[in-house]
Amino acid sequence: MAPIVAGTLCPFAVKARMRGAPAYDEGRSLRANLEASVPAFTCFTEDTRTEELDAFVYRFPRSAVGDDINRLARLVRTLVEVLLVHDPVDPRVPARRDILAARWRLSFAGVDYFAPVFSPVYGKEHSRYTYGVSDSVFVLMQPNSSFHTRLGSRATKIRGNIRSRFEEAGQPYPSTELEAHKFVLPLNPEDNPVNWYDLPPFPRDCIAERGLMAS
């Protein structure tokens, strides 16, 4: 994440307090890796109640995730499903109707999260550019409490200033109201939102997954 932290126009990135998911095991499926991360993510979530933590970082080898937006969408679809199914407070299966609701947030153990995806598929003129990192895809699980702490009482003004900085640098955000459409962004701001919730998740079986990646 270091090149992204150093390169991004977000003024809070360099001060962010992050933890990482367990190292990706390429001998296991993507879904199995996500399931193995749940205890560490649960611990992180509990600690956000008493510590000012900013992100839980998932790093995936590009070779395991793929090279296009649909693969990123399936990654998020799988991540959301694994986390919700293993939620220690409210285990559930993600429902499209809920995800498309105006007030929906990705919630785990009672904590709301924002989950932006950063990938080499995004070019230099994109807000999710990886600044030279070409072999990895990242998903940042950012607790909403981090935004509240960092932005304070001037949240609306600060958000507007940050958005303006990105636009002036040629990395505009797409205009979207739904939270779900902010996780995986389209390649171009004017493109349709990425409907990750409509795609099938990656399977748990490693052989089946490799077959899908090759197809």
Rank of each mutant, 00 (worst) to 15 (best):
T45G: 05
E46S: 13
E46Y: 09
R49H: 09
E51I: 03
E52N: 10
E52Y: 09
D54W: 01
D54T: 03
D54G: 01
D54F: 03
F56A: 02
Y58T: 09
Y58N: 04
P61L: 05
R62P: 02
R71N: 15
L72M: 13
R74F: 13
L75S: 03
V76S: 05
R77F: 08
R77T: 06
L79S: 12
E81Q: 02
E81P: 03
V82N: 01
L83C: 13
L83Q: 11
V85M: 03
D87V: 03
V89P: 10
D90Q: 14
D90V: 14
D90S: 15
P91N: 06
R92C: 04
R96S: 06
L100F: 12
R103Y: 07
W104I: 15
R105I: 10
S107F: 07
S107Y: 10
F108R: 00
F108S: 04
A109D: 08
G110W: 08
G110P: 09
G110T: 07
V111K: 08
D112V: 05
F114W: 01
F118R: 01
F118K: 00
S119E: 00
P120N: 09
V121F: 04
G123P: 12
E125G: 11
E125A: 14
E125S: 12
H126N: 11
H126M: 10
Y131I: 13
G132F: 13
G132R: 15
V133E: 15
D135A: 09
S136H: 06
S136F: 02
L140K: 06
L140H: 12
L140S: 11
M141H: 13
N144C: 06
S146G: 00
F147H: 02
T149P: 04
T149Q: 12
L151Q: 01
L151K: 00
A155N: 03
K157M: 14
K157E: 15
I158P: 07
I158K: 10
